[in-house]
Amino acid sequence: MNQKTSLTYKNEILEKYRKEKGGEMSSYLLKPTRKQIKEACIWLLNRRKGSYDEGILNRFFKFKEGENKLYAIERTKGDKFKPIVNFLTGETKSTTPANLELISWLIDFRPRPLSVYLRSNHPIHKPLEPNQNTIYANNEVEIPDIPETKVIHKNDKSITIISQINPTLKITTIVSL
C-alpha cells in the first residue's frame, strides 16, 4: 500500500479531472475559463454541501462573517480563478492548497479535503469503472472511497449498506438487485 501524501492527493485530483473532465461539471470544466470556474462555483454553492465543503469555500473565497456567499462569489474578480485554469490546462504544474481544495470540490473528488484524505485508510488505487465492484467470498461488496462502509443486510433482492462519512453523519443505502 502506498502512503498518502499531499503529492498523491494532487495527482489523484488531476487524474480524476483528466479522466472525467469535471464529471457532472464538464460543461464548465471541459475547457475551463475564469468565467466558467466562477459560474461553476455559483451553480454548486447550494448544491454541494459536504461536511468540509464550507471550509473549502471559506478558505478560497475568504468570506466575511455573515456575508452573502453568492453575492461574494459574483463579486470575485476573474483573476482569482486564473491559477486554477492554468493548473487544469497544464500551463503550471502546481497550485496553492486553497486552489487545489476548490478544484477537489468542483470535481467532487473524495475524500476531501487533504486532512481527510490523509486520514483515510483506503489504499491508493485506480478508481473502478462504473458498475464494477469487488465481491468477496463472504458476499460483502467493497465500496471504494467511502470511509467506514459496511454491508449490513443482503438477500436475493437487495443490499443494505451503511456508511459513516464522519462521526455525526451516517447514511443508509438500500440497493435493489
Rank of each mutant, 00 (worst) to 15 (best):
I42T: 05
E54Y: 15
G50C: 02
N46E: 13
K31W: 10
K35E: 05
L44E: 14
R48V: 05
E54F: 11
I56F: 07
Y28V: 02
K31R: 13
L45D: 09
P32D: 06
A40K: 08
I37Y: 07
A40R: 01
G55I: 03
L57F: 11
L29P: 01
D53S: 04
C41W: 09
R48W: 08
N58W: 10
E39G: 02
R59V: 00
E39Q: 14
A40Y: 06
W43H: 13
Q36Y: 14
L45E: 15
E39Y: 10
N58K: 15
T33A: 06
L44G: 13
S51E: 13
P32E: 01
L57C: 06
D53M: 05
P32Y: 04
T33I: 11
N58L: 04
E54Q: 14
R47D: 11
K31S: 14
I37D: 08
C41I: 07
L30S: 11
I37C: 03
S27K: 14
L57G: 10
G55W: 08
T33L: 06
I42G: 04
A40P: 03
Q36L: 15
N46F: 11
W43L: 04
Q36V: 02
K49H: 04
E54L: 12
D53Y: 04
S51P: 03
L45S: 10
S27D: 10
C41K: 06
L29Y: 04
E39W: 07
P32I: 04
L30D: 03
D53C: 03
S51A: 03
I56S: 02
E39P: 04
R47C: 01
K35I: 00
N58R: 13
Y52M: 04
R34C: 15
R48H: 04
C41S: 14
D53H: 06
L57S: 09
S27Y: 13
K49D: 12
G55H: 12
W43F: 14
E54A: 09
R34S: 15
K38F: 14
T33Q: 09
R34V: 07
Q36W: 10
G50E: 04
W43P: 00
S27W: 12
T33N: 08
I37H: 11
S51R: 08
G55P: 02
R59D: 14
R34K: 12
L45T: 07
Q36G: 02
K31I: 09
I56Q: 02
E54T: 08
P32W: 06
R48S: 02
S27F: 12
R48E: 09
K35D: 00
N58Y: 12
E54P: 00
A40E: 02
R48I: 03
R59P: 01
G55K: 08
N58T: 11
S51K: 07
R47T: 01
I56R: 03
A40S: 09
I37Q: 06
L44M: 15
L45C: 05
R34F: 05
L57P: 06
I42Q: 05
Y52E: 12
L57H: 11
C41N: 06
K49M: 02
E39R: 11
S27C: 10
R59Y: 07
R47S: 13
L45K: 09
L29D: 03
R34I: 01
R34L: 00
K38Y: 11
E54D: 13
K38E: 10
K31P: 00
I56G: 00
L44F: 05
D53K: 07
G50L: 01
S27Q: 04
